[in-house]
């Protein structure tokens, strides 16, 4: 009888752990499948070697700064037309209007979500935290390409960034 009790308690504890295991599982699921508009990362050398197709895609850039952050954040490159496989640069402008240094971290998202997986970055300001001194302004780079697996019916896509105050967070 005690045996069953112990087993059931173990199951309960494992299921508590399973709740936590869902976090990396979900992350991995999104990364592997590109669900939820997650984008992919690629080595620059590989990106430059990729074959270029004669397919035009219009990419629009949008950006927001979260209300917790007294920053101006806008795309310098509003939109781009590029060919699939071609490596391109886009720039974003950011300025800290407060009188204190602030650490920000940007999240990103591609619409339509099914195109996200084929949006490959070689370099991005969103890869790491950005620390801006009081009044500091900066132009930031995203270097990216679209891989040839991009679904044929995707002719335009939007890359969106949101800057958040990252002060409180230890990770990332």
């Amino acid at each position: 009888m005690n045996n069953i009790v112990v087993k059931l308690v173990i199951v309960a504890v494992l299921m508590f752990g399973f709740g936590y295991a869902l976090v990396p599982l979900y992350e991995a699921f999104c990364r592997v499948t590109g669900f939820g508009g997650k984008t992919d990362i690629i080595e620059e050398a590989m990106a430059l070697e990729a074959p270029i197709e004669d397919r035009d895609v219009a990419v629009t850039f949008t950006s927001h700064s979260h209300t917790s952050l007294p920053w101006e954040f806008r795309p310098v490159t509003g939109a781009l037309d590029l060919k699939v496989g071609e490596v391109q640069d886009a720039y974003f402008y950011v300025k800290n209007y407060s009188d204190r240094p602030i650490t920000g971290m940007s999240t990103f998202n591609v619409t339509p979500p099914r195109a996200g997986f084929h949006f490959k970055k070689t370099e991005c300001f969103c890869f790491k935290k950005q620390v801006l001194e009081p009044g500091e302004e900066r132009e930031m780079l995203v270097r990216f390409m679209l891989d040839t697996e991009l679904p044929d019916d995707v002719h335009e896509l939007t890359l969106s960034y949101t800057f958040f105050d990252n002060e409180k967070f230890a990770g990332q």
């Binding site: 299921m15 709740g19 958040f164 990252n166 409180k168 967070f169 230890a170 990770g171």
Partner: peptide, 28 residues
């Protein structure tokens, strides 16, 4: 499933007070 719910609200609690970012996009 009750332990899974306990896990979810524990994540909420640590997100709220202990600097984790399970659900907060600001921390990823």
């Amino acid at each position: 499933v009750m332990p899974v719910f306990a896990g979810a609200v524990t994540m909420l609690l640590t997100d709220r007070h202990f600097g984790t970012a399970f659900f907060n996009p600001a921390g990823g």
